[in-house]
């Protein structure tokens, strides 16, 4: 049995063409009387033969064209990176500003609503829609709401910080999603 273990090693070596003549003789001699090793050797040969003869595959004619077009229709790689970078910066700024406007808008709206409620501007003799019109008409009163907020250094710092943070995180989020998409599509 121990000898067969040795033969396994020799068969593996044979597959790599690393046998000496002496080892080859030993292997042949053993296999002539040990059926198990003979079969093992045969199985190995069949496996390797099968692997060697798997056909080489052709990716098709269109591939070269696709590759050449991808490479040469674009400007050289370096230029491409910087233009991509510039697009990124511009897109980032636009996003930053628009998210700012968007968030500022929502902050103002909540301030209006919250401030009005807080200061008791709601006129109970009026219906809902009339109330809104009332608010809009007497909008100048809102100035006092803002004054309240901005006169307090803590609340104004808080407000500005929250606004900036949400602008930054919103921008990062959108850019992340966008860059994911770019990577997926261009596959480079």
């Amino acid at each position: 049995m121990n000898e067969c273990m040795n033969i396994y090693e020799l068969i593996q070596k044979e597959l790599d063409g690393e046998l000496t003549t002496k080892e080859m003789e030993l292997l042949d001699k053993h296999c002539s009387h040990c059926f198990a090793c003979q079969e093992l050797r045969q199985d190995f040969f069949q496996t390797i033969y099968g692997l060697n003869n798997l056909p080489e595959l052709d990716p098709g004619e269109a591939l070269i064209e696709t590759i050449m077009n991808t490479i040469y229709s674009k400007s050289p790689a370096q230029k491409n990176i910087s233009s991509k970078g510039l697009t990124g910066i511009v897109a980032g700024l636009v996003l930053f500003c628009s998210s700012g406007i968007f968030l500022l808008g929502s902050v103002i709206i909540s301030l209006i609503a919250g401030g009005l409620l807080y200061l008791g501007y709601e006129n109970f003799s009026l219906g809902f829609i009339e109330n809104i019109i009332y608010w809009l008409t007497y909008g100048y009163n809102l100035l006092s709401v803002f004054k309240h907020v901005f006169n307090n250094p803590y609340s104004s710092i808080f407000l500005v910080t929250v606004l900036l943070l949400s602008m930054v995180s919103f921008t990062i989020l959108v850019m992340l999603l966008y860059s994911r998409r770019i990577i997926n599509y261009e596959k480079v």
């Binding site: 595959l57 990716p59 591939l63 590759i67 991808t70 490479i71 596959k187 480079v188």
Partner: peptide, 11 residues
Amino acid sequence: ALDAVQETFIR
């Protein structure tokens, strides 16, 4: 495999 070949030559 096709995508990988393309990516290989581009790289």
